[in-house]
Amino acid sequence: MKKLKVGILLFDYVDILDFAGPAEILSLTVKSKAEQALTLYKKHLLPTRPFEVYTITEKGMKIVTHSGIKVEPDFSIDLSPELDILIIPGGPLRAVQAIAKNQKIIDWINTHKNIEYLCSVCTGAYILGETGLLDGKKVTTHHLALKMLREKYPDIQVLSDRKVVQDGNIISSGGVSSGINMALYLVEQILGESTANRTAKTIEFIL
């Protein structure tokens, strides 16, 4: 299979685990036990890994996360490589509302509506909701944001009983650490259950 390019949108006050969890899962996923052992031994990731993960911001500038840690992205949205998977993480309400009002970012997300997988973590579903791509679809989000998402976007079928929800090429996940479940779900869909289980075991995550 070809190496899949994964873009993770970052913005000021994003929650770290929302993007770092999926980034770590997809970056550490490999195709065999032997490669897994090498990955844990070597300083650099293997060139044969199935996912290549990039961070992307609107202008390619450093952002500050919700916890105050600064992150320098790989690309701006204008210079982003062609993606196979796009992940939209969440953050505090004011932060996601600001991004939802940013028409350039919303338009950019919409250009990816037909990629293999378009994903949200936590309140990132609020941002995706603004694109209109979730209308008529089943999605989930952080448990504290379920009501807000239903009221803001009444055409979305918001579910509260699952950590990960797939509807077509759109995959949404619940709050914060649920992004890890979502990334492992992606690995299972693309590479199979045994690979997903091996990756989960590597980071000592219980599915």
Score class of each variant (00 low, 15 high):
Met1Ile: 04
Met1Thr: 12
Met1Leu: 05
Lys3Asn: 15
Lys3Gly: 02
Gly7Thr: 00
Ile8Phe: 02
Ile8Ala: 03
Leu9Tyr: 10
Asp12Val: 14
Tyr13Arg: 11
Tyr13Ala: 11
Val14Glu: 01
Val14Leu: 07
Asp18Gly: 09
Ala20Trp: 08
Gly21His: 05
Leu26Val: 01
Ser27Ala: 12
Lys31Ile: 11
Lys31Gln: 06
Ser32Trp: 10
Ser32Gln: 07
Ala34Gln: 09
Ala34Ile: 15
Gln36Glu: 05
Leu38Thr: 00
Tyr41Trp: 03
Tyr41Ala: 06
Lys42Leu: 13
Lys42Val: 04
Lys42His: 03
Lys43Asn: 14
Lys43Met: 03
Leu46Thr: 01
Pro47Thr: 01
Pro47Ser: 02
Pro47His: 00
Thr48Leu: 13
Arg49Phe: 05
Thr55Glu: 09
Thr55Ile: 09
Ile56Asp: 00
Ile56Ala: 15
Thr57Met: 02
Met61Leu: 14
Lys62Ala: 14
Lys62Tyr: 03
Ile63Gly: 13
Ile63Met: 08
Ser67Pro: 07
Ile69Trp: 09
Ile69Phe: 07
Lys70His: 12
Lys70Gln: 08
Lys70Thr: 15
Pro73Thr: 10
Pro73Val: 02
Pro73Leu: 00
Ser76Met: 07
Ile77Arg: 07
Ile77Tyr: 01
Asp78His: 05
Leu79Thr: 09
Ser80Arg: 06
Pro81Glu: 03
Pro81Gly: 12
Pro81Leu: 07
Asp84Thr: 00
Asp84Leu: 03
Leu86Ile: 12
Leu86Trp: 01
Ile87Lys: 02
Ile88Val: 12
Gly91Ile: 04
Pro92Tyr: 13
Leu93Gly: 01
Ala95Arg: 01
Val96Ala: 12
Ala98Cys: 00
Ile99Thr: 10
Ile99His: 10
Lys101Val: 03
Lys101Pro: 11
Lys101His: 08
Asn102Arg: 06
Gln103Ser: 15
Asp107Tyr: 10
Trp108Phe: 13
Thr111Gly: 06
Lys113Phe: 15
Lys113His: 12
Lys113Thr: 05
Leu118Ser: 02
Ser120Ile: 05
Val121Lys: 15
Val121His: 06
Val121Tyr: 00
Thr123Met: 15
Ala125Ser: 07
Tyr126Glu: 09
Leu128Ile: 11
Gly129Asn: 11
Gly129Lys: 08
Glu130His: 10
Glu130Trp: 01
Glu130Asn: 06
Thr131Ile: 12
Thr131Ser: 04
Leu133Gly: 05
Gly136Leu: 10
Gly136Ala: 03
Val139Gly: 07
Val139Glu: 11
His143Tyr: 14
Leu144Thr: 13
Met148Thr: 14
Leu149Gln: 11
Glu151Val: 14
Lys152Tyr: 09
Pro154Lys: 04
Ile156Arg: 05
Gln157Phe: 13
Val158Trp: 06
Val158Gly: 15
Leu159Trp: 11
Leu159Val: 15
Asp161Val: 10
Asp161Gln: 09
Asp161Tyr: 15
Arg162Ile: 08
Arg162Leu: 06
Arg162Val: 07
Lys163Arg: 07
Val165Gly: 11
Gly168Ile: 11
Asn169Lys: 12
Ser172Gln: 09
Ser173Asn: 07
Gly174His: 01
Val176Gln: 05
Val176Thr: 04
Ser177Trp: 09
Ser178Thr: 04
Gly179Ile: 00
Gly179Trp: 10
Ile180Cys: 06
Ile180Leu: 07
Leu184Tyr: 05
Glu188Tyr: 11
Ile190Asn: 08
Leu191Pro: 12
Leu191Cys: 06
Ser194Arg: 13
Thr195Gln: 12
Thr195His: 01
Asn197Leu: 04
Arg198Asn: 07
Arg198Glu: 10
Phe205Arg: 15
